[in-house]
Write a protein that binds this DNA or RNA. Sequence first.
DNA 1: CGGGAATTGACAAAAAATTAACATAAGCGT
DNA 2: ACGCTTATGTTAATTTTTTGTCAATTCCCG
Lengths: 212, 212
Amino acid sequence: MEEKEISQAVVARLPRYLRYLGELRDEGIERVSSQELSDIMQVTASQIRQDLNTFGGFGQQGYGYNVDYLYDEIGKILGLNREHRLIIVGAGHLGQALVNYSNFERRGFLFRGVFDCDPKVCGKKICGITVRPMDELADFVRVNRIDIAVLTIPKTSAVEVAGKLADCGIRGIWNFAHVDLRLPGHIQVENVHLSDSLMKLSYNLSSAGKEA
Amino acid sequence: MEEKEISQAVVARLPRYLRYLGELRDEGIERVSSQELSDIMQVTASQIRQDLNTFGGFGQQGYGYNVDYLYDEIGKILGLNREHRLIIVGAGHLGQALVNYSNFERRGFLFRGVFDCDPKVCGKKICGITVRPMDELADFVRVNRIDIAVLTIPKTSAVEVAGKLADCGIRGIWNFAHVDLRLPGHIQVENVHLSDSLMKLSYNLSSAGKEA
DNA sequence: CGGGAATTGACAAAAAATTAACATAAGCGT
DNA sequence: ACGCTTATGTTAATTTTTTGTCAATTCCCG
């Protein structure tokens, strides 16, 4: 269907558009022009129009964009109209934090299971979900038709677990482990490398003030 | 000092170089060529050489790069030779997860305090650090010369707290709240917008299979 | 110690992303 | 209903980023 390749840079900006549009909507604002959005978001109006047009014409000349409509459309593009079934692998603090963060549920990301290799943790409940042992992982994914696995485990076991998940038909992996997963191309991997992010901040602290 | 502007894209790749070099070092490998790195990291050799040369010539013609040396140099560029003093604002699950993640400490990111607005949480200890009430925040930052504040609080309070932090001389903010902070230019902000990341994954799941 | 092999650093070319410009279509007021 | 204003969609220009190429330098083997 999709003709042209859409760059990840454009996709990465969509959630931010969605966020601002949501705020406008909550304020009861009906329409917005690319120039107004530009002022609020500190992005060029040209980029906004260009980005939106990658996916189709959502605006109207002389009028601008209807906030509600555009919000919904971007949501659809991002797949937020569908429900996603997720599991967490790794019931540590990070895993718990994600399960507890209710905003994901609100967006249709439904946590259906939590897994951990530590027998002491298994059986406990996190946010109403029982922690299961790792040997139930494969069956659970298949039976419950899990889309996305969230990897909040140490890098040492991440590669192995990711391989197992790939074998039982997972479609996407949200990877918090500090390794690059090499998986078949049909499996989508989104990395969240927190230490990389912190190092970037550290760099910018060091370099601040040097220039100019 | 720094003459040319260095793009954030280049900076963002440095931590990954560091990670792979660390692995090579741990395997006892002494030297590496850009081509070898290219094979391991799935990046063009040209980009590796170009990136490294942005910061100076770390290699030697006919030999390649010395793993130990390059590892150290990239570490220095990223400011990992200095110690950073951090505080966590928001003692929820995410805040706790970050305090507990010992790899940051190992890199010189030292958690010196945890703050929360909930009186029920204050006084408790997280990973050996006592949770303090918010009204002690400003003084603590000044007295302990805190570099970086980690914002793991809801968006509603994030803007206000960030402003307070700016006033008491914070240099960097690692922002996990789902808002864009507008702060004076000398304050570095590094955003980790988890829901944006998850939406990106969702998009890629939806679009997978459509193309070609 | 000399010559071929290896590999960087620098530069050039290509590709991608961003910004600017503008013709065109729709709204809005009179 | 008409024309002026507004603001999109689109194409073109510019800038940035990435990739390719190659001369120059260093290593390494005999």
